[in-house]
């Protein structure tokens, strides 16, 4: 996933159009976007929206309130039956948090007749302690498929001043990324919060991509195009993917079992990656005759 778009959980208009903005995932938010006295309303609205609207374009992530709040268990009760692709727990600071969540998911999945482990977890790490425990969090459970940095709360926790160039979060970005990659999972970068600064967004997104992040979250639909572009395959990658798929076709036609390209064997992960690259390319409308 290149982009994850936050959608406030108690906003019917935005829920109706959550999947039209081109985001690879939408994060339906029950946490910060919903005031404490409307948590009950948002939970029911999100449940109904997911059931009725049957989002097709993109993965479904639901962000829930932190463990230890009165909302945590109710959120899980409401969300698990929807069988989202991911649950995003918030203020995750330790492996124990994830283990506790995963145990609850085991029970709830069983209750709902879902396959065990169906729902994955993307922990939102947004405290100094969480950053220090990033690797343990990444390895805490097999459900954890990615780490996600939340820089707003984190920089407040540091007593740092949040800035556009983001020097104050450089350590956290590096730490999250290293922990995620060491655990062989994905890493997602914090949203860029100035909705109107397109140039700043492009810079911030390409920095994250160069650092090694898999993708980036967005708080505005208007950021999705730029984020997708920053995290999309380059021309060279596209060219290589096309050659891979052509070689495979050629191999099939000739009835060859094994196919090689540029002196290297093409195995399944290479083919899968090439297919993903081409899918991304098509989704973005890249690769035309004149691009």
């Amino acid at each position: 996933m290149r982009s994850m778009l936050f959608i406030p959980g108690n906003n019917p208009g935005m829920l109706l159009n959550a999947d039209v903005h081109g985001a690879d995932a939408m994060i339906l938010d029950l946490e910060d976007a919903v005031s404490p006295d409307q948590k009950d309303a948002a939970r029911i609205l999100v449940r109904n929206a997911v059931r009725a609207l049957d989002y097709q374009n993109g993965k479904l992530v639901i962000r829930i309130n932190p463990i230890g709040t009165p909302f945590f268990d109710d959120d899980l009760q409401a969300v698990v039956p929807l069988s989202p692709d991911y649950i995003m727990p918030t203020k995750v600071d330790s492996a124990e948090y994830i283990k506790a969540l995963s145990e609850k998911l085991d029970l709830l999945e069983a209750e709902c007749g879902l396959e065990n482990g169906k729902i994955s977890i993307i922990p939102l790490i947004e405290t100094a302690e969480g950053i220090e425990n990033a690797f343990a969090i990444a390895k805490a459970d097999k459900r954890v498929k990615a780490l996600f940095l939340g820089a707003e709360d984190y920089s407040a926790d540091l007593h740092a001043v949040r800035s556009k160039q983001g020097d104050e979060i450089l350590y956290a970005r590096g730490r999250i990324l290293n922990a995620a990659r060491a655990a062989a999972i994905d890493a997602y970068d914090t949203p860029f919060t100035d909705v109107n600064d397109e140039e700043g967004l492009e810079k911030d997104a390409s920095l994250a991509r160069e650092m090694g992040f898999t993708g980036k979250a967005a708080i505005s639909p208007r950021h999705i195009t730029a984020i997708n572009a920053a995290f999309s395959p380059s021309k060279a990658e596209i060219q290589y993917a096309k050659e891979v798929l052509e070689a495979i076709e050629e191999g099939k036609r000739l009835g060859k079992g094994a196919v090689s390209l540029r002196g290297k064997m093409i195995d399944k992960p290479v083919v899968d990656r090439a297919k993903r690259v081409i899918e991304d390319m098509l989704a973005l409308g890249l690769g035309g005759d004149d691009e």
Binding site: N17, V20, H21, G22, S220, P221, R222, T225, G285
Partner: peptide, 13 residues
Amino acid sequence: DPVGLKIAETAAR
């Protein structure tokens, strides 16, 4: 309006 912008972007394409 993000929906309006989405429509406009598609129309330009």
